[in-house]
Amino acid sequence: MDGVSELYSDYEHDFTALTVALQAKLRDLSSGTVVGDQWKTVLRAAERELDEADELLASMDNELHALAPPTRAKLQPEFRKYKAELDRLHKEFKKLSSSPSAREALLGPAGAPAKFDNATAAMDQRARLLQGTDRLQQTGDRLTSAHRIALETEQTGIETLQELRRQREQLERARHTLHNVDSNVDRAGQTLRTMARRLATNKLITAAIVLMLVFLIIMVLVLKFR
């Protein structure tokens, strides 16, 4: 969609992929395909993914408010769907985590002493560390992407200002040229008016000379035949 920031698109892509994985885990938990320690591991992984989905949705919300109003208005219905879907997943997780299957997986069968599997705990801790490292890496990548976008935006702004400056200089040169043309037209008009006045004066002088010659010829003829 036009106008959507690259950062928002990244958040949206990560959120969609995460919810798909989370739905698969919840289906496994509710279908009974995983049991015992594996059930507990999947439940904790689902809990971590829910936390990460909450963070992604909050980041999407922050980025959404930074977009232009027309773009934000187009994205808000889809964002509300994401929020409703995450709320549904939270409710499903809460229901599963409070079920008898969850209590049996976490505490052991009723009436039996609780067992603590050191290997499972170590694997779970390692998974948490890896998950945290991945999230830090993703956050760093997003910050790098945001910084790059900011630099590109700044460069685009500089280029736009330079182009506007060039256009302004061109307009000023064009205005100066038009001013010179206008001045030349005024001078040409004045020259033409002066020439017209001189031409009229010459015509009057010529007419006066002709009349004078005619008068002199008439006088000579009169004196000759008297």
Rank of each mutant, 00 (worst) to 15 (best):
T133I: 07
G32W: 06
A196G: 10
L50T: 09
V20R: 09
A114H: 02
K224P: 05
A122C: 06
D51K: 10
L178M: 12
D61F: 08
G189S: 14
N184K: 14
E152L: 11
E12H: 14
R187G: 06
R226Y: 08
R175W: 13
L223P: 00
Q190V: 10
L26P: 01
V222P: 00
D186C: 06
S183N: 08
T139D: 12
R48D: 07
L161W: 09
F79R: 08
L43I: 00
V222C: 03
K74T: 05
S9A: 13
V34N: 04
L161V: 03
E169C: 01
F15K: 01
Q38M: 11
V210G: 10
M219E: 14
S59R: 07
L26C: 02
M212G: 12
V20K: 08
T194S: 14
Q162H: 09
P70R: 04
S59Q: 07
L178F: 12
H147K: 10
R148C: 03
P69L: 08
M60L: 14
M195R: 13
Q76R: 11
L129W: 01
I149W: 03
E104D: 11
D37R: 09
E47N: 12
V214M: 10
Y82E: 08
T19I: 05
H147E: 11
R88K: 12
L26Y: 01
H90G: 02
T160K: 15
S99Y: 04
A119R: 12
Q155P: 00
R27D: 07
L29P: 01
A127Y: 00
A127E: 01
F116Y: 05
R88L: 05
D10L: 12
A188M: 12
L106E: 08
A112N: 07
L86F: 04
L43G: 09
T33F: 00
D10C: 09
L18V: 04
E78T: 15
L130F: 01
A150N: 09
G108M: 01
L64T: 03
T191D: 15
D124H: 02
M212H: 15
R165T: 07
H65G: 10
I218S: 02
V185M: 04
Q162M: 04
R175P: 00
H65W: 11
R48W: 03
F15W: 13
D37Q: 14
G132D: 11
A46G: 07
Q131H: 15
R165W: 03
Q76K: 07
E49A: 06
Q23F: 04
N118I: 15
R27T: 05
Q137M: 07
A21V: 00
K40S: 10
V34M: 05
L64G: 01
R128W: 11
K115Q: 12
D2S: 13
A53P: 02
A24P: 02
S59E: 09
A17T: 09
